[in-house]
Design a binder for these strands. Structure first.
Lengths: 342, 342
DNA sequence: CTGTTAGCGCGTTCAC
DNA sequence: GTGAACGCGCTAACAG
């Protein structure tokens, strides 16, 4: 059941009384310019017939699709917003972005999406981390299609032309320092192995921060998935610490902890303090408000797209560093000692 | 700067010592089957040369893309998850889904996305609501590309082949009834005009529910955007009602109200009760837990994709109703009277 | 079973 | 400034 045949430039040419080459010239400006009269005729004919350019034919003929493929682990929270900004940025440059989710970090879906995108002959690829191994990726991507990584650390040059990474480690390092400054005499990082590379960055920052403290502080690292939140908090509060500081993997983790703390009537920020990452809606609108690190989505999206455009030969300025680090911004709220001014 | 030429079936044919038609036959099964020997030779050649099918050429030639386009207002929360499920469902049927966000309900971006998708000659379209007017849509979509609406009420047949709608009205009707049953002697719907059609459905349900109560109850409708949440709650609690029931547009709205209530130490569920819609992460993990209506993402995605497949001629069973309504499921938590059992 | 051939819709030379 | 002719990579009829 093929679609009822669409209007082509042939018919537009006939209706306008010119040749197809002329129509092509008129309809994508760039080339030779035609007489005002011809232009008008062609545009009218196209309009009336409801002509719509066939991307496939165009792409096939010029060997360029003006399409960028995006593969992210999911489409919620951070990933969703990132996708929106990337799409905006791409459009801004005359490209369009096709978004694919690899359903959690499933390598099978990921490589299927990659394959689809490469078969479409996208001009460029943006991927968030990569669940597949390096060899596997290399084997697939070696088609000359430039690939930019989002939050991918230490990938070899023959795979990715660049990476735009969020400064998670630095954020965690500073959080550690800050919580200690605020008088916490015990520190805990609550991570989420769901996203391994990212969790690792945070852990690194946590350790770095601990190492830089004037004196050693008791600390632990726990995993959210293996945690009975209520029991965990009860245990923490029963400990010897006067004031415990928690660094949460992200606002989702933080909200869970916060609710359990509320249920146990734990006093923020006197007995417990918390800082998390993402500065999601729920960090801002929970009670008490969760101190969190804000993500510069627009900047990150710009960097990523520009890296690609640069590779395409568009004269845009793009950072020369292959791995560019985007800093987060701390938004302080009540869970880390900001007084509730409301 | 064209991409370094890719491997084509011509080269595979040469390497395998067969004709291009044979290669084409082997590489996409469906058609005539070839001798074991030929198949092996072709597949080996393809593998070694790193052949990757060119979707554009295939689509052009067969006038069918196996691509479905999705346009949603955004990629967070409900929309993001919906997109994920749709993608899964599409893949399941041998299609792939290209996701486009129209950045809030911007009609300009929306029509640009639509245009891009139609230029790609997608086989089908799925749109969430539609910010553009009916005439505008009709003018654009009249290309024979089937369009299925998600949460679109009352669209004419010549635009959309069908719609899969969530039962927001029914959920709100029942919520109204339920809050009254729980002893609320004052009811408020807190809406969000951000998404007009959807807000309207909820309001309708609210009114319907009010009309079916044994006796009339004081009620109001307010808009979240125009609300100073703290002042609003203070005013509500200062009123004559013994127990106020709130129906929130969604969990985002609910969380905001909940935090303000917590700040004012308002007693859930004795003085205030609340029910919202979406059953997001934050509904489950806030304190107290927010009673909310759960969305059957998978079912909704299936219905939408199947409607398209049916139109494509794939023999799948699809509901005959043009507007299919998917019911929500109530998840009761502490904000509507469920005792905190923790 | 396999090879030949004619398009699919558009971009791009070249001559005119 | 305009038109005819060829090629992009692949599929679909036929023919052999």
């Amino acid at each position: 059941m093929s679609r009822p045949k669409q209007v082509t430039i042939v018919e537009v040419a006939a209706a306008a009384g010119v040749s197809i080459a002329t129509v092509s010239n008129v309809l994508n400006r760039g080339g030779i310019r035609s007489s005002k009269e011809t232009i008008r005729k062609v545009e009218m004919a196209a309009e009336q017939l409801g002509y719509r350019r066939n991307t496939m034919a165009a792409g096939l003929s010029r060997n360029k699709t003006f399409e960028i493929g995006l593969i992210v682990p999911g489409l919620t929270s951070y990933y969703g917003r990132l996708a929106e900004f990337l799409q905006l940025e791409a459009h801004h440059a005359g490209y369009h972005l096709s978004v694919f989710s690899s359903g959690g970090f499933d390598p099978t879906i990921e490589r299927r999406n990659l394959e689809v995108l490469l078969q479409r002959r996208v001009d460029g690829l943006i991927c968030h981390g990569l669940a597949m191994g390096k060899d596997s990726t290399r084997a697939i991507v070696n088609s000359g299609t430039p690939l930019v990584l989002i939050n991918g650390w230490g990938w070899p040059e023959d795979i990715a032309v660049g990476a735009v990474n969020l400064g998670f480690a630095e954020a965690c390092r500073q959080s550690t320092k800050l919580l200690a400054d605020r008088g916490c005499d015990s520190l805990i990082y609550v991570g989420s192995k769901y996203s391994n590379v990212i969790d690792e960055q945070r852990r690194n920052g946590f350790h770095l921060g601990l190492g830089q403290l004037p004196e050693e502080i008791p600390h632990r690292i726990v995993e959210m998935k293996e945690l009975d939140v209520d029991a965990f908090l009860r245990e923490v509060m029963a400990g010897t610490a006067q004031r415990t500081g928690i660094i949460a993997f992200d606002d989702h983790v933080a909200l869970k902890l916060l609710s359990a703390a509320n249920r146990q009537r734990i006093d923020f920020p006197n007995h417990l303090q918390m800082i998390s990452i993402n500065n999601d809606y729920m960090a801002k609108h929970s009670y008490p408000g969760i101190s969190s690190w804000d993500i510069p989505y627009e900047l990150q999206a710009q960097m990523a797209i520009h890296k690609l455009l640069h590779k395409f030969g568009h004269s845009v300025e793009a950072s020369e560093e292959r791995e560019f680090e985007v800093p987060l911004t701390f938004i302080e709220r009540e869970t880390s000692g900001l007084t509730d001014t409301k």
